[in-house]
Design a binder for these strands. Structure first.
Length: 423
RNA sequence: GGAGAGGUGGCCGAGUCGGCUGAAGGCGGUUGCCUGCUAAGCAAUUGUACGGGUUUAAGCCUGUACCCCGGGUUCGAAUCCCGGCCUCUCCGCCA
């Protein structure tokens, strides 16, 4: 949520930011309502002040057995006015709040300006794309031949987009998750969390899924709960309505969660195999940072995520999203993409973003420094999502005989050096 | 799911038959004094949000609101009434 004071004082700056993000929002209208609100609030505060004073006088009079009926009937009128004013004030506030919740964050000044993903900037490419001297298979065929994932039965159980990992496929998936969690906790200083996989309206509003993107989530009507689309939702809300001590910052959490996404409207787009799923596994990194340090923290998160891919010896690249491709809540964002040799495409496995105080305002997450209280900056990044990582491992580590080599760092977790071809 | 108890400031904990309680008391924190150092002691200070005023600014002054949340009664509610949420205890069910 944007700061209403920023809206009052620098409306032009915000208009430019929103324009760069490709959205058009009537800020003047909000400012008008804000003006009316403050006017009425001032008047009403004065009435309330009067009521407080006179009520005390009434109390004294009654104690002294004096007549207070005039004052009381006066105050009856005042109270009536206060009541109607309060209703109006609440309407103004609701209206402003509703508008603010629907305004996206504005990009950081360093974010490259652009309209769509075509304008994203490649920051660097790391590792070499392997040259295979045999005809390679794609991850679907490999998963099938080695009995790692049973898409058909997954679909039978829940529908398409719900993969059924089987045997060594399940074990490899688990190995990947464990390896990532261990790296982040032992080498990168994160505290591990296992969060609820469902979240309420409040929590999903903090992170920005609600009110605009409710359609993207699975919703359990009876209990008014959303299945988490990412661990970012529960983990960011750990400190909802809290004031942290500045000494605690940055607070670093890593969490595994299953992620559930309806992916409404994306049918037929890169949906083969593991590319786009309704349920997938992800290890998430979340940090609560001092506002002055948050851009350093962003680099730190990118670095932590990157280390996974480096250690797995997979070719990857980092791109910076342009203003037009930035998500609703973020000011700056780096994606990490893995190379899929079979499809000759880059696959996004991580998205690392700074939200500055956007989520902190919605979730009321603050810190105290020298007796002053201010909103923290929240950041997160995938570290990383498993399905496309699985694609990259299977495809990049395949051998001519159809077996799949296990990346060195995963061997202690997987317990074997390779997966033998079965079919 | 059934029965009962309860939700007060960073924490503990008082709050009378509604009025002078933003909230006693204690702990903790901060600052000052004291002290050879530490401990102890003494004193002061110590919530948040949103307005208004003032200052170059840190700040200061001032108003309103907040004692789980939302309504209601009343001139006036932490205190009374209704609804919700959460916690605890017992019973039931269950991985």
């Amino acid at each position: 949520m944007l700061d209403i004071k920023r809206l009052r004082n620098n409306p032009d700056e915000i208009k430019i930011g929103l324009k760069n993000k490709g959205v058009n929002i009537d800020i003047e209208n909000i400012l008008n309502i804000d003006n009316n609100l403050r006017l009425l609030e001032n008047q009403t505060d004065e009435l309330k002040h009067k009521r407080n004073v006179v009520s005390k006088e009434i109390s004294f009079k009654k104690k002294n057995k004096e007549d207070a009926s005039n004052a009381i009937s006066d105050m009856q009128k005042v109270s009536k006015t206060i009541k109607t004013n309060d209703v109006k004030i609440q309407e103004y506030k609701n209206s402003i709040n509703k508008s603010l919740l629907n305004i996206p964050n504005t990009p950081h000044t360093s974010t490259p300006i652009g309209k769509s993903e075509k304008d994203n900037v490649v920051i660097k490419e790391v590792g070499e794309k392997k040259n295979f001297n045999f005809s390679i298979k794609d991850h679907l065929e490999l998963a099938e031949n080695n009995s790692l994932i049973d898409f058909k039965r997954g679909a039978k159980i829940a529908g398409s987009g719900f993969p059924l990992y089987t045997g060594e496929g399940a074990k490899l998936e688990r190995s990947i998750i464990n390896y990532m969690l261990d790296l982040h906790t032992t080498k990168h200083g994160y505290t591990e969390i296992i969060p609820p996989f469902m979240a309420n309206v409040n929590s999903t509003t903090t992170t920005g899924q609600l009110p605009k993107f409710g359609e993207d989530m699975y919703y359990v009507n009876e209990d008014e709960l959303y299945l988490v689309p990412t661990a970012e939702v529960p983990v960011t809300n750990i400190h909802q309505n809290e004031i942290l001590d500045v000494k605690e910052l940055p607070k670093k959490y890593t969490a595994y969660s299953a992620c559930f996404r309806r992916e409404a409207g994306s049918y037929g787009k890169d949906t083969r195999g593991l590319q786009r799923l309704h349920q997938f596994n992800k290890v998430e990194l979340v940090q609560f940072a001092h506002p002055k340090k948050s851009y350093e923290v962003l680099e730190n998160i990118v670095n932590n995520a990157e280390t996974i891919l480096k250690n797995l010896k997979l070719p990857y690249r980092i791109i910076e999203l342009c203003t037009g491709d930035l998500s609703f809540a973020s000011t700056k964002c780096f994606d990490i993409e893995l190379w899929s040799p079979a499809t000759e495409k880059w696959l996004e496995v991580s998205s690392c973003s700074n939200f500055e105080d956007f989520q902190a305002r919605r979730g009321n997450i603050k810190f105290r420094e020298n007796n002053k209280v201010d909103f923290v900056h929240t950041l997160n990044g995938s570290g990383v999502a498993t399905p496309r990582l699985m694609i990259a491992i299977l495809e990049n580590y395949q051998k001519e005989d159809g077996s799949i080599e296990i990346p060195e760092v995963l061997i202690p977790y997987f317990g074997k050096k390779e997966i033998q071809k079965i079919k």
